[in-house]
Design a binder for these strands. Structure first.
Length: 489
RNA sequence: CGGGACGUAGCGCAGUCCGGUAGCGCACCUGAAUGGGGUUCAGGGGGUCGCGGGUUCAAAUCCCGCCGUCCCGACCA
């Protein structure tokens, strides 16, 4: 819809709005291969900043980066029974190489547990080799039936951490710790609040003992599984003979964890913060934090204003040396495009802060700063510009998280709810519903069939309701746990 | 794999019923004016009409076959 200047209204069709927003903000494009996407520089810039921040966090928690092969022998995948059952239906398989049929087909990794733990088995001999903490940045392939830009593509970029530990408790601590790292990242960097907790057996990773996840609420009140962390127990170490000699001399199987987040986060960012004018990117992740738009009529004015703008940008660069990290500022000096058109373009891309500067401003030694999140305009003196910009960026980052959290809570139901009412809610606007679960998988399945909602997680304590639910949402029998029920992407 | 729709310029579409010179909007290029929230005017470039076959003097249009995409279900980070 190149001639339609406004984005589709979210209320009418959030999915249509999402596709439109992603394409028009030039985050991604469709590729010639169905279900795969091309990430454009603007989208990759956001992902790159996510990558860097996460990588720093992984380094700080003692993990090292490594790289493992794209191809996995078919027999490897089959070594862990649940794992192959879970992933076999969605694998891409290479059967020919060099013009000849291969003796053993090669799977294009849907995830790397098998190849990584087969190597861990070579590297680990003693309890002194543990814990082994590895992360890899890679692309993986899962042959999904239905795809959506960023949220579910056949091929996607991600990070997968894989660790080996001497005891169950150490592995459990690691899985929980990395879930916390994800949560911190999503809230502090993405301004995207999440509910953490444990997955039910139905939603557990194929081959894991326990799966933990971060669930974020999108603007259509659906949940997005934004990151997962698994305690794999000894399932893979037994399948790949990953053993070590303990301090007491006995031979034992190691305990593994794995955890990952993907380019799906970029989609989550769009679905959390976007509005009818396009994206809203939190300052910490914005490839450009501040865009300067000069305003002028005549050529003389243009010369004068652009020169002044260049001076101001240089001044900001000078000032920024006192601030950690370089201020990412862009002067949009393109001629022949009216300022209004530039405003729309940068708003569409979600640049958090805009500076408008023209002859009238220069005469008053000021400029106008405009926040993308609230679109609030504020005249600002050029003398204190550095401090004001820095302060505004911090405030925008904070306010976006607060706004997202308020929206989530406004669409959460914690009061006791009947199943009929629950069905109405799920048929209507949807919500995060905190209600009891008896622990019976049959109830979970029945609800999924009837409403398409599932148990997203059994929330961690801090997310649970003040009063523990007493009855199962579906069967009304005694509740053994509180569950977060919602529709999901 | 079941149900529905579509395939015509970079994007969005009209034209198909009723066969007769390949069109529109946006984007792009040139020029001029304009410039504090999506500028205006004038000129211009760009398409084997998804692919293959058939009917016909003549096919985007009718017939047959194939391919592809999107939406709705089952699968999923």
């Amino acid at each position: 819809m190149a001639d339609d200047k406004k984005l589709t209204t979210r209320a009418q069709d959030f999915s249509a709005w999402y596709n439109e927003a992603v394409l028009r903000a030039e985050l991604a494009d469709y590729s010639p291969v169905r279900g795969c996407m091309v990430i454009r520089p603007n989208g990759y810039g956001i992902w790159e900043r996510m990558q860097r921040a996460l990588d720093d966090m992984f380094k700080a928690t003692g993990h090292q980066n490594a790289y493992f092969p794209l191809f996995i022998p078919e027999s490897f995948l089959k070594k862990e029974a649940q794992h192959v059952e879970g992933f076999a239906p969605e694998t891409a398989v290479v059967t020919h190489g060099g013009g000849k049929k291969l003796e053993e087909p090669l799977i294009i990794r849907p995830t790397s547990e098998t190849i990584i733990y087969s190597m861990f088995a070579k590297w680990v001999h003693s309890y002194r080799d543990l814990p082994l903490l590895i992360n890899q940045w890679a692309n993986v392939v899962r042959w999904e039936m239905r795809t959506r830009l960023f949220l579910r593509t056949l091929e996607f970029l991600w990070q997968e951490g894989h660790t080996a530990h001497a005891t169950h408790d150490e592995a459990e601590d690691e899985a929980r710790r990395m879930l916390g790292v994800y949560r911190d990242f999503m809230e502090a960097w993405m301004a995207m609040p999440v509910v953490t907790g444990q997955k039910t057996d139905a939603e557990r990773f194929a081959g894991a003992l326990r799966t933990y996840s971060c669930e974020a609420m999108m603007q259509d009140n659906k949940a997005l599984q934004a990151g997962t962390s698994h305690n794999l127990g000894q399932n893979f170490s037994k399948a790949f003979d990953l053993t070590f000699q303990s301090e007491s001399g006995s031979l034992e199987h190691a305990w593994n964890t794995s955890w990952g987040v993907s380019t799906r986060l970029v989609g989550g960012l769009v679905m959390t913060h976007g509005d009818d004018n396009g994206l809203r990117v939190p300052p910490l992740l914005a490839p450009i934090e501040l865009v300067v738009v000069p305003i002028y009529k005549t050529d003389e004015e243009r010369t004068q204003v652009v020169e002044a703008a260049n001076r101001i940008v240089a001044g900001l660069h000078d000032w920024e040396r006192r601030r950690p990290g370089r201020l990412r500022v862009h002067l949009d000096a393109r001629d022949g495009i009216k300022p209004g058109a530039k405003y729309y373009e940068w708003e569409l891309k979600g640049i958090p802060l805009r500076m408008e500067i023209g002859p009238r401003d220069l005469a008053k030694e000021q400029c106008v700063l405009v926040r993308r999140d609230t679109r609030e305009k504020r005249p600002t003196s050029l003398n204190t510009l550095g401090e004001d910009v820095a302060e505004l960026l911090v405030r925008v980052q904070e306010d976006m998280l607060i706004a997202a959290r308020e929206r989530r809570e406004a669409n959460s139901i914690r009061e006791r709810i009947t199943y009929d009412r629950f069905r109405e809610v799920m048929d209507g606007d949807g919500a995060f519903v905190y209600a009891g679960w008896c622990g019976n998988p049959a109830c979970e399945t029945a609800v999924k069939e009837e409403t398409k909602a599932t148990i997203r997680v059994l929330p961690d304590e801090e997310f649970r309701s003040a009063e523990a639910p007493t009855a199962c949402l579906k069967c009304g029998q005694g509740a053994s746990a509180e569950a977060l029920w919602a529709k999901a992407y």
